[in-house]
Write a protein that binds this DNA or RNA. Structure first.
Length: 269
DNA sequence: ATGGTCCCCTGACCGC
DNA sequence: TGCGGTCAGGGGACCA
């Protein structure tokens, strides 16, 4: 579910509510997520949350004992609620604070994760990740270099976390449309100026999406329970058959790398 | 290394 | 109303 804008929206929503708070209890009602919920989570009890960071689509909660690494998978969301609010079936984990609130993880599909590390950026799942889209190294020259010789679809390149992080299925389609690039085009056969447009488009789209609080299609909700409103700004995603906002041509849907892909056959080459 | 496929899981939706 | 099939925002594991 959540791509970078949704995870960042979540981070910004929960951070002011949990930063500096002391943890008084951990309540794991269902430990069977993608991997078992890390038993070390209990080490948070008696410490406080010193920082709430994001790396790629991971959220990192830092304490003096170590860091929680959270991933929301396809259907995860986090809310801060009064701890006497009864959890629903898919509310799997609570981190309970001293002010009678808790950080509550909901994840119906259980593709998410709650892991633990002393040095989260060096964790196996994080250490080989590519740059953040907002990092200065992510530009047209970088993308062009990483694409050299690659025959796979440019959309797959954009969604490859070793190349750049945070761009998931929605924003890959949106960015390619904004840049006028056909999603199926072989990555190694796109010229530098077009990659410059693409890297600009990725940053632009992600920035806008964060401004709207992310995109809610079904599961995603922000820390306050509200949906993200970028859904109304989507140009192509989930709009097969509808007119391209730029040229009016009917948008198409195809499958690339097992994922639904949306594009305009006229604007994108 | 690269590219392609499968799968983890629950729920919503659609056609019959 | 029930039932089966399809699809969903991620990404690790495995194969050639």
């Amino acid at each position: 579910m959540p791509e970078l804008p949704e995870v960042e929206t979540t981070r910004r929503g929960i951070a002011p509510l949990i930063l500096g708070r002391s943890v008084v209890a951990i309540d794991v009602r269902e430990k069977r997520l993608r991997w078992p919920v890390a038993p070390q989570l209990k080490r948070l009890v008696g410490t406080s949350i010193d920082a709430v960071r994001r790396r790629a689509k991971y959220l990192l909660l830092d304490s003096e004992q170590g860091s929680v690494i959270m991933h929301l998978g396809m259907s995860g969301s986090l809310r801060v609620v009064p701890c006497d609010v009864p959890p629903s079936v898919h509310d799997h984990v609570d981190i309970v604070f001293d002010n009678r609130t808790c950080l509550r993880l909901r994840d119906p599909r259980r593709f998410g994760a709650v892991l633990w590390s002393r040095d989260p950026l060096q964790h196996k799942l994080l250490k080989s990740l590519g740059p953040e889209p907002f990092d200065a190294v992510f530009d047209g020259v970088y993308l062009h270099a990483r694409a050299k010789g690659r025959k796979a679809a440019v959309k797959s390149l954009l969604m490859d976390g070793r190349v750049v992080v945070g761009v998931g299925n929605i924003y890959a389609s949106e960015s390619l449309h904004a840049a006028g690039i056909h999603p199926r085009r072989a990555a190694g056969r796109i010229a530098l100026p077009r990659y410059q447009r693409l890297s600009d488009a990725v940053r632009e789209i992600l920035t806008q999406a964060i401004g709207f609080g992310g995109t809610t299609l079904r599961d995603f909700s922000r820390a306050d329970g509200k949906p993200g409103y970028f859904r109304h700004e989507l140009a192509v995603y989930d709009r097969a058959g509808q007119p391209c906002p730029a040229c009016g041509t009917a948008l198409r849907q195809e499958t690339i790398g097992q994922r639904s892909t949306y594009y305009c056959p006229r604007c994108q080459h």
